[in-house]
Structures are given as C-alpha cells and as structure tokens.
C-alpha cells in the first residue's frame, strides 16, 4: 500500500522542507521505499537540504512535460538506496504544472511501488499549494509556536479540508522548552486548543538542524540530536505505532535551584 503525504504550512520558513527531508529519510531508514517530491517550483531547496544538488539532471517539470521518463528524473539518495528525490524545476514557475498533472504524477509514483511519497509544498495558498495537494492522501501541517505561523496554519487547515483532505496532522516545530516554561512561548496544548487538530509530533529548536542542513545530511540520521529523535518518533507514528510525545525537560538553571531551596510547602 502506498500513501502520498503532503507537508504544508502556509507561512514560509517554518520548516516544511526540513520536515520533508527528515520524514523521508526517517522512513527510508526503516526500510520503506520513499520518494521525496519537491513541489516548490522556481524555489527548489529540498535537493540542497538532502545534499543531492549536484546530481540533478531532470526535474519535475521535465517529467510532467514528457521530456524524460519518471525513473530518469528520480535521484537516488547517497545514504539509502530505497530513498529517491524528484527535484523541482528551478527555472520555471508554479504555473508550469497543473493539479491534474500532479495527480497523475502521484499515481505513477504509486505504481512504481513506493511505500511513501512525501510532497514538499511551497509556502502560500496559490497555484503551487493547489498543485502540491492535488494528489495527496493525507496532509501534515507544520507550524512554529508564533502567532503569524499559527494563523497561517489555521487558514491552510481550512483550505485542506475544503479540498477533501480531512484531519490533517500537526507538527509543532522549533519549540523552545525554556521559553515555554517561562510562559513566553505557546506550548503544544495552547496551539492544539486554537487549531483543533491532532498532533503528530513536536520538534524542539535544535542547533543540530542548522548543522545538518549545512552539511546536507538530515538530522534524523544523527542519534545525538534531540530534533532527530523527535523526527524518528514522528516516523514511528506515521507507521501507526503509539509513541508518546517526548518531554524535553529543561535542565534547572542556578536560579531554579535556588528557587527550590526557598520554596516552602506548595
């Protein structure tokens, strides 16, 4: 059985591409045959995040227009031979592809016996978004705990449901647990209360993500990274396993320790 999952957010810069790369890589690590599709035509980035930018010959628009066969455009990953990338075209714009063509592309990938087809959606709610969700079976909405990102996520959830993609799941990205503890950042409960949506996972703000992106090696492969662990947990949940949302206890600072000494009763 194969499934097309679109990774979307509305707002740009909240981590759609990073999430796509890590989930694709994480699923491949567990032996699933995965195709990552970069639907952000004109602003391709999934290739650099995956470290595959030097291998591109054909792209998504070439496949859609029949300039090459699907297999020719799929780039095999360096690390996992069951992981493939279909890069976006860099020199074209979003109108080069129609929703019907994307739907057909997804159907063709399903026929190629991919277990998962992960689509990295562009930011915004225009043509690129409509193309990216056209062939999807389910949707993941990525947001950060900021008012602008949550507002856009709400809009996207409405548009997804209007297109028949019901019950999208939430990935809350770049959470800073020290700030949540201080009451200066919305926590997972706050965001789900507002968006009324089920949570797929919480990814902590982690320097390892920046380093991983610098190197073109998704953090999910790094056993030391907390964000990597969060992505591995999300992958387990996608595969239907019941993994609890991990708690990221912040280590007590000197002041916290002092507070505990001075706390009477309570």
């Amino acid at each position: 059985m194969s499934e097309v999952i679109v990774i979307t957010s509305g707002k740009g810069g909240v981590g759609k591409t990073t999430t796509s790369a890590n989930l694709g890589c994480g699923l491949a690590m567990l032996g699933k045959k995965v195709a990552l599709v970069d639907a952000d035509i004109g602003l391709r980035n999934l290739d650099v995040v995956m470290g595959l930018e030097n291998r591109i010959v054909y792209d998504l628009v070439d496949v859609v227009e029949g300039n090459c066969r699907l297999k020719q455009a799929l780039i095999k990953d360096k690390r996992y031979n069951n992981l493939y990338l279909l890069p976006a075209a860099q020199t074209r714009d979003k109108n080069a592809v129609s929703p019907e063509q994307m739907q057909k592309l997804c159907d063709n990938l399903k026929e190629d016996e991919f277990d998962f087809i992960i689509i990295d959606c562009p930011a915004g709610i225009e043509q690129g978004f409509k193309n990216a969700i056209a062939g999807a079976d389910r949707a993941i909405v990525v947001t950060t705990p900021e008012v602008s990102a949550v507002r856009d996520a709400d809009r996207i959830i409405g548009l997804l449901e209007a297109s028949g993609l019901n019950n999208p799941l939430l990935v809350l990205n770049r959470l800073r647990f020290d700030m949540v503890k201080r009451g200066d950042m919305m926590a997972i409960d706050d965001v789900t209360e507002i968006l009324a949506i089920d949570v797929l996972g919480v990814v902590p703000d982690d320097e390892a993500i920046v380093i991983a992106t610098n190197k073109g090696e998704p953090a999910v492969t790094n056993p030391e990274s907390k964000a990597g662990q969060a992505y591995r947990n999300i992958v387990q949940r996608i595969l239907g396993e019941n993994v609890p949302i991990m708690s990221f206890e912040v280590e007590d600072t000197f002041l916290d320790k002092l507070k505990k000494i001075f706390r009477f009763g309570n």
Partner: peptide
C-alpha cells in the same frame, strides 16, 4: 508559597497568553 513569586509576572499577562488571546480573536 514561592519566595520568588513576587518577581514573577502574573500568568494571565505572560506573553504566551497575550499571543493566545490575540490569535483566538483574529481567527
């Protein structure tokens, strides 16, 4: 009682709750 609670901002005025209230209204 928490000795340091004097220095803490009240929960209802924490920036997280401000964000939540503003978001709810705008949505």
């Amino acid at each position: 009682m928490d000795f340091f609670s004097f220095f803490k901002k009240k929960d209802s005025t924490s920036s997280k709750n401000v964000a939540k209230d503003r978001l709810k209204l705008v949505l």
